[in-house]
């Protein structure tokens, strides 16, 4: 019983911390993303938004915001002594899905830049596409390692099939 309570407390803390960190990232993304659109529309290519190592984007920001809200609702659910595994799982799987998407974008960017040598990629660097992955990975990876059994079903042969 004590162990269950500890697990629940750990998850509560994890969900709140993860949610708040993602919330900060999301808000920053949205604000910087909006500013970047403005800067682009005014053709301010040398603007400071382009110089900071944080990749701006409104839609990415909104996606991160929703992941953070899922975890936040999970935190309040667990506070009411209810099962929040679903919130942990959905939030983490969504975040992992976005990381996979950014890895895919990174791979295609590398292909476009080095194999196809496209003009659009003249000033592109690997780090430019890698930044998303670096910023987004730690928390979902931590959740995946710590709560692996709650998030994923491990494959096993069923006894019915063995018989």
């Amino acid at each position: 019983m004590e162990m269950l309570k500890n697990t629940s407390n750990n998850m509560k803390t994890s969900l709140l911390a993860g949610s708040l960190i993602f919330l900060v990232v999301a808000i920053t993304e949205v604000i910087l993303g909006a500013f970047k659109i403005y800067a682009d529309s005014k053709e301010l290519e040398e603007h400071w938004v382009n110089a900071i190592p944080f990749p701006p984007g409104i839609f990415t920001g909104l996606a991160i915001l929703i992941v953070s809200l899922v975890w936040l609702v999970g935190y309040f659910v667990i506070k009411k002594d209810q099962n929040a595994n679903g919130y942990l799982s959905v939030g983490t799987i969504l975040a992992l899905g976005f990381i996979l998407l950014f890895i895919l974008i990174l791979i295609t960017d590398i292909f476009n830049a080095y194999a196809l040598g496209l003009e659009d990629y003249e000033n592109w660097t690997v780090l430019a596409s890698l930044r998303w992955i670096i910023f987004l990975s730690p928390i979902p990876m931590f959740f995946t390692i710590k709560y692996r059994d709650l998030i994923f079903t491990r494959k096993k042969k069923t006894s019915a099939l063995q018989s």
Binding site: L62, I66, V70, V73, N85, G86, Y87, S89, T153
Partner: peptide, 27 residues
């Protein structure tokens, strides 16, 4: 409650369901 039931509570949540759907489609 199965794992499916727990996940359904989130993806069909009255406030979170539609935003989750929108970001899935965006992705």
């Amino acid at each position: 409650l199965t794992r499916s039931d727990l996940v359904d509570k989130v993806v069909t949540h009255k406030w979170l369901g539609i935003p989750i759907f929108l970001i899935v489609m965006w992705g």
